[in-house]
C-alpha cells in the first residue's frame, strides 16, 4: 500500500500529466491535417453506443422522481407544481449529472480499454511508424466526439425523462400531454437551460480526456488495460462532480439561481 505522502505526490504527478495531455490536445486540435472522417465515425460510435442507455436512464429518472415526489406534493396540495419542479430539477441538475455519469461508465471505460489495448499491442507505435500522428487520429477525435455528443445525449435524455414524468402524471392525475408540457415550458427559463447545456460540453470533454489519457498512457501489459478502463471511470466521475460544483458556482454568480 502507498504511504499517504507518496499517494499525495503521485496524485499531483497524475494531475500534472493530465494537464500536459490536455495542453497537447489543444495544440493538436487546431493544426492540420484534420481527421474529419474519423471524427464523424467516433461521433457515430459514441452517440450510437450510448443512446439506448441514456434513453432508459432518462426515462427511469423521470418515473422515479415523479413517483417519489408526488406523495409529498399531494400532502401540501401542490401537485399542480409537479411539472415545474420535475422539469427544473431534471434540466438543471439531475439530467446532466446522471446522464454524464452513465456516459462516463460507458464511454470513458470503453476508450480507456480500447486505447490501452492498442498501446500494449504496439498498434499506436505502428500508426506512428506509418507516418500518421496517433494522438491526432485517436485522441483528438475521441475527445471532440465525446464533447459534442454528450450535450445532444443530455438533451435527448432530459426529454425522455420529462416524458417518463408525464406518463406518471397522466396515469395518476389525468394530466394531458399539452397541459403537462405547457407547464414545463412555462417553468423553464433561459438561466435553467443555457448553463446546464454549457456544462455538458465540459462534462463530455472531461470524460473523453480522462478516457484517452488513461488508455494512451497505459502500460503494464494486459493488467494495465483493465486498470486503465477502471481508473478512467473513477477519475472521470470524480472530475464530473468537481466540474459540476464549479459550473453551479459560476452560474450562481451570473444568473443568481
Amino acid at each position: 500500500m502507498q504511504k499517504p505522502k507518496n499517494a499525495f505526490k503521485s496524485f499531483f504527478i497524475e494531475v500534472g500529466e493530465l494537464s500536459y495531455f490536455a495542453g497537447r490536445f489543444f495544440k493538436e486540435v487546431f493544426s492540420r491535417p484534420f481527421e474529419f472522417r474519423e471524427l464523424l465515425r467516433q461521433c457515430y460510435n459514441i452517440g450510437n453506443k450510448s443512446i439506448l442507455l441514456v434513453g432508459v436512464t432518462g426515462f427511469i429518472i423521470g418515473l422515479v422522481l415523479t413517483l417519489q415526489t408526488r406523495p409529498t406534493l399531494e400532502e401540501f396540495g401542490a401537485v399542480s407544481w409537479m411539472p415545474s419542479m420535475v422539469s427544473i430539477s431534471i434540466i438543471r441538475e439531475i439530467g446532466p449529472v446522471i446522464i454524464a455519469l452513465t456516459f462516463a461508465g460507458r464511454i470513458a471505460s470503453g476508450i480507456g480499454a480500447e486505447l490501452g489495448s492498442m498501446k500494449v499491442t504496439e498498434q499506436i507505435d505502428a500508426m506512428e511508424v506509418s507516418g500518421t500522428n496517433p494522438f491526432k487520429f485517436l485522441v483528438v477525435t475521441r475527445i471532440l466526439a465525446a464533447t459534442l455528443m454528450l450535450p445532444i445525449l443530455v438533451i435527448f435524455g432530459d426529454a425522455v425523462a420529462l416524458y417518463g414524468s408525464y406518463i406518471i402524471e397522466n396515469t395518476k392525475g389525468d394530466v394531458s400531454f399539452v397541459l403537462y408540457f405547457n407547464k414545463v415550458f412555462k417553468a423553464l427559463e433561459f438561466s435553467d437551460i443555457f448553463p446546464a447545456t454549457i456544462k455538458t460540453f465540459f462534462f463530455g470533454f472531461a470524460i473523453g480526456l480522462v478516457g484517452c489519457f488513461k488508455g494512451y498512457t497505459c502500460n503494464k501489459g494486459t493488467v494495465g488495460v483493465g486498470m486503465a478502463a477502471n481508473s478512467a471511470v473513477v477519475y472521470a466521475s470524480m472530475l464530473l462532480f468537481v466540474l459540476d460544483f464549479i459550473a453551479v458556482f459560476v452560474t450562481d454568480i451570473f444568473f443568481e439561481i
Binding site: P33, E114, M118, T121, E122, Q123, D125, A126, M127, S130, G131, T132
Partner: peptide, 22 residues
C-alpha cells in the same frame, strides 16, 4: 512488429490502406 500490431478494429484492406492515407 514482433506482435504484428495489426489494427484489430479494421479489415485487412483498411490495415493496408492506413499508411497510404498520408
Amino acid at each position: 512488429f514482433q506482435g504484428n500490431a495489426l489494427y484489430d478494429s479494421m479489415t485487412v484492406r483498411e490495415n493496408l490502406e492506413f499508411p497510404l492515407r498520408r
